[in-house]
Design a protein around this nucleic acid. Structure first.
Length: 309
DNA sequence: CCCGGAACCTGAAGGC
DNA sequence: TGCCTTCAGGTTCCGG
């Protein structure tokens, strides 16, 4: 897709466009080339050029249609479009639980949300049966990703950074790992896998991890994510790659989605529980819940004795 | 600011 | 077979 121009945009489900309006989305996208493809956390980022005037695609169009595509509406002249448009823009996509980006799908898949047609004949289709996935078109990426925590695979995500981010947190470590503003990009199954690898109970208070456990967790996150990327993701349910292939990371999972199966470490059955409304898999024997270190004998800040009915 | 729970959605799988 | 319940690769809003 790199270097190719978007010549036509079709929106089948207005709900999939978070920003701006559907009309503006189509209008602003048409005529721009895809300059780079990057990622921040779980957000996929298409950096776009300024609108290009080209003899080969004189009728660049933007189209907002629902159900069956209608005949496209031409967007003025390209000169006008360029004059009224932002110079560069970013198309951002989030797949949420069930979204997919499909390149040149063989048959028209169900649940189509947005179709981008390129000047080389390629078609990029954004699909999502569950209607959670979203797209944005923004000048500044930070308007969407600005609050995200550090990238867990970047060099500046050190054990010390993790310790700083967990300090003082009273929520379960599982919940904190899923908080994208603490660390960006860890999903439910990778949180479970990381906690198992570090032998930490999902309900352990995040701020109570010892320095040693924090270092182990840091290493575990790195290992789990690197392995999963090497396996092209996990396709337990919906996820498929742009060519329709499935990932294989779930075959290597130790606990995630393996309730009742033997723990690979101790052979006792893996349990499932719910933490913050998310299914959570762990080994109760290998991942022990420990009381807070140091604070066990401390008195509470106030003692209300017999004062209330 | 931090925390927990509900809401947003719909298809697929499992139990009866 | 059919109905009902549960679950799901996530984020955001609301109330405490």
């Amino acid at each position: 897709m790199l270097g190719h121009c978007i010549v036509r945009v079709t929106v089948f489900d207005a709900k999939a466009i978070r920003q701006p309006t559907v009309e503006e989305f189509c209008h602003q996208l048409a005529g721009r080339a895809i300059v780079s493809l990057t990622r921040r956390g779980k957000y996929l980022i298409f950096s776009l050029s300024a609108p290009r005037a080209s003899r080969s695609n004189p009728t660049v169009t933007g189209e907002a249609s629902f159900g069956q595509p209608r005949s496209p509406a031409t967007v003025g002249t390209l000169a006008e479009a360029a004059a009224s448009s932002k110079s560069t823009l970013n198309l951002i996509a989030h797949l949420k639980l069930s979204g997919a980006l499909l390149l040149n799908a063989r048959e028209p898949p169900k649940y189509s949300k947005v179709l981008l047609q390129l000047d080389n004949g390629s078609q990029l289709l954004f699909t999502d049966p569950r209607r959670f996935a979203r797209m944005w078109l923004v000048e500044d990426i930070r308007t969407v990703t600005g609050k995200l925590g550090p990238e867990p695979l970047s060099a500046d995500f050190t054990p010390q950074v993790l310790a700083d981010r967990l300090r003082g947190r009273k929520a379960p470590i599982k919940a904190v790992l899923l908080d994208q503003n603490v660390i960006a990009g860890i999903g439910n199954m990778y949180a479970d896998e990381s906690l198992f690898a570090a032998r930490i109970h999902p309900l352990q208070k995040a701020g109570d991890l010892s320095p040693g456990k924090t270092r182990k967790l840091h290493a575990a996150i790195h290992e789990v994510l690197t392995a999963a990327i090497g396996d092209k993701g996990a396709s337990i349910r919906n996820y498929i790659r742009p060519g329709g292939e499935r990932g294989t990371a779930h075959f290597g999972f130790s606990v995630a989605h393996r309730g009742g199966e033997p723990c690979p470490n101790c052979r006792r059955p893996i349990q499932r529980m719910v933490v913050r409304n998310r299914g959570t898999y762990f080994c109760p024997h290998c991942q022990r819940l420990r009381p807070a270190t140091g604070s066990y004998g401390e008195p509470p800040p106030f003692a209300l004795v017999g004062a209330m009915p």
